[in-house]
Nucleic acid binder design. Sequence first.
DNA 1: CGAAATACCTTGACAGGCGAGGTATCACGA
DNA 2: TCGTGATACCTCGCCTGTCAAGGTATTTCG
Lengths: 114, 114
Amino acid sequence: MSVASELIRGNTETIILAQLMKRDGYGYMVNKAILNMTGGRFELKEATLYTAFRRLEDAGCIVSYWGDETTGARRRYYSITDLGKESYRLRKKEWETAEAVIDKLLSEGEGETI
Amino acid sequence: MSVASELIRGNTETIILAQLMKRDGYGYMVNKAILNMTGGRFELKEATLYTAFRRLEDAGCIVSYWGDETTGARRRYYSITDLGKESYRLRKKEWETAEAVIDKLLSEGEGETI
DNA sequence: CGAAATACCTTGACAGGCGAGGTATCACGA
DNA sequence: TCGTGATACCTCGCCTGTCAAGGTATTTCG
């Protein structure tokens, strides 16, 4: 089953930060990494991806710099800041809380089992 | 920790359907049930609640009828339809898929442990 | 030479959540 | 009796994140 994007909403920035926790990356690469990690089940739309990068940079969670590629298309690399790392940990906790709450609320829909 | 509403987005209808899987209910009651089940951590905003009921009814997932209260405020009761039950199961599966994907993507942000 | 992949970006529309406002009833205490 | 809080419903308009659609430029490969 593919992933309903309504349900991902609010997690895109956290997902991007998670990628950047490992190493610096550029947009296209980050998205391909996400695609690979999910076995092709999920990929951010480009417009979503780049607007999320923009928001994260405006918020001081990441900084960007142009790569020094002498060949191929230019790449804008992003690096996570200390603020971004802090923000990532907070967002992750928020996700875990929300996840638990939703799981709990949806687990009640099963009356006809047993 | 309270729940970031951005992360609930897209799940409100499913949460409401889960409540109605158990028994018919009216708006205010459904919301209080949610509040109780989450130990006060989460509650739908009224505007969100009622617009969600409206969408669900328009989609044929629920039907409504006025209660026969002779005293107190009038209550609009909602009952889940077969289509609604079907929809609930699908939405729940979608949630589980999204949950697994996000968990996977966020689990990668932990390099510095160990 | 043309197509596909890489790589970036912006605009405008859309949908869901919600603040703020409204209505009406009832219970309770000052 | 008069206000306050709880119950119970509803709507309007704004905000925010997503995304379709469009654009640019380079390189590789047939």
